[in-house]
Amino acid sequence: MSAISSPRSPAPVTAQHPRAAQPSRSTAPSSGAGPGQPWQGRPLGPGAGHLHPGSDPHALPTGLLIADKANNRLIIVDAQGRIRWRFPRPGDLRPGQTFRVPDDAFFTPDGRHIIVTEEDDFVIRVIDIATHRIVYHYGTPGSHGAGPNQLWNPDDAIMLRDGSIVTADIKNQRLLHITEGAHRPARVWGGPTGGYHDPPRAWGAPNGMFPSAPGEFLVTEIRGDWVTAMSLQGQVRWSTHPPGVLYPSDTNQVGPDRYLTTDYSAPGQIVIFTRTGRPLWRYRPTGAAALDHPSLALPMPNGDIVCNDDYNQRVIVIDPHTNKIVWQYGHTHHAGRAPGYLSNPDGLDLVPPNSLVDRTLHLNPSSGG
């Protein structure tokens, strides 16, 4: 199998480990706030960083965006665990605007905005990072439905290079493609009368639609434990069951025929598998070290895997060569809002140029997504 550490130039590894060698961590860690970036500036928390004891700042080569769901906020932390940016600050929301339970957040292709799903408030928002302003929303906050400008538990909205948005709409049993600035979908796959696996006509509680191969997307279905590759025209390429997974969440491509998913369960797990459902790597610690409802895992440029471990109130970085946690932000089992604490962190993304959409383009340079 090919190395997760370098999707642009994969290297062979053993069957026991997704990568053959541990990258050196002797260089200084990135602050995640380079020149000209809109989150550049002093840390917004007092004093030094707030990492869990034993964390290695060199394990995080870039800044990290976290959707801190139960705290109703987004934050960007650097490798030392310092908050560099947050939303909303006092005054960021205009009269009448709300920002509740953000469960997923990703950078847009231009790197200047963040797209957020507020799943339990039935709305998708786009936030300008520099101005801290909401510049677009789709959905009616606090009111669910299936008509124009309506959603019912949207999940993992992603903005494509043309400014359009794709999203899973879980309780409406459908996928949506929304053109830039629109308030009605351009394409709909599935609908409320579905609830079972028959792509592209019906879906069983889809909770993710992530760009993968050129013009294609990976759809994760909770009901039935399915992952399906589908084009934007609705052509189904393949479907498989993530092996040994009870509640699949947010499957994304990490290399040629290599797919990464989490099991949103207790104990939870992280699994890399092929399109035929063959397992390549599994992280499933037990006992006190067990994951508790992890909902998203992403690969990092150095080969480590970052994951939000929702009910354990933390975001962790795992070295898949040793299966050890090498970096942690958040206090295990203890929710909070002070620097170093999280409360049900349910989404994350790496700061550009290492974000999910950036990585997709590197994996598939010809992708139209």
Rank of each mutant, 00 (worst) to 15 (best):
D250R: 15
D56W: 03
S239W: 01
G347F: 02
A335Y: 09
P294R: 02
D156E: 13
A70F: 12
L93E: 07
Q269K: 14
N149Q: 14
E216Q: 15
P192S: 11
N71A: 13
R282T: 15
V188Q: 14
G147N: 11
K69G: 05
L74V: 11
P88R: 07
P43I: 07
H50L: 12
S265P: 07
T251I: 05
H137D: 10
Q235V: 06
G49M: 13
Q16D: 15
A146L: 10
Q80P: 01
A79N: 03
P353H: 00
D169K: 02
L298Y: 00
D319P: 06
A229D: 02
L160T: 02
M230R: 01
G190M: 11
R237Q: 09
D120W: 08
A266K: 08
G277I: 11
P61G: 08
A213K: 10
G147E: 12
D349E: 12
P154C: 04
S55Y: 03
G224A: 11
P29K: 02
M300K: 00
H334V: 15
N149W: 12
D309H: 07
G204W: 13
P12A: 14
D309C: 02
R100V: 11
L93R: 06
D120I: 09
E221I: 05
R89I: 10
T251Y: 10
Q97M: 02
R89K: 15
D120H: 13
G54V: 09
P18L: 06
G368Y: 02
T117W: 01
A3G: 13
L361V: 12
L291Q: 01
P10K: 05
F122L: 00
P339M: 05
W203I: 05
G36F: 04
G63T: 00
G96Y: 12
I270N: 02
T14P: 05
D304E: 05
H58S: 15
G195H: 10
H333F: 09
G268M: 00
P57Y: 08
N308R: 04
S9D: 09
L361I: 11
S5T: 03
Y247C: 07
L280P: 00
Y138P: 00
H334R: 12
P43F: 07
D225M: 06
V116R: 04
I75T: 10
V317Y: 03
W226K: 15
G255P: 09
P29S: 14
A157C: 03
R82Y: 00
Y329W: 04
L232M: 12
R161L: 01
D358L: 00
W152R: 14
R237H: 11
N153T: 10
H132C: 02
A338P: 00
G142N: 06
L298S: 05
H197Y: 09
V116S: 06
R201C: 00
P185S: 13
N252W: 00
V254R: 00
S212L: 08
T322F: 00
T179P: 01
R314I: 09
N149M: 05
T14K: 10
P90T: 13
Y311N: 14
A59F: 01
I316F: 07
G215T: 06
A59R: 04
D257N: 15
H197A: 11
W238I: 08
L151M: 11
D128S: 12
E180P: 07
A59T: 07
R174Y: 04
Y311R: 13
Y247S: 04
V227S: 09
F87W: 04
C307W: 03
G181T: 11
T360G: 04
G111S: 09
R8D: 15
A186T: 13
P43T: 09
S30M: 10
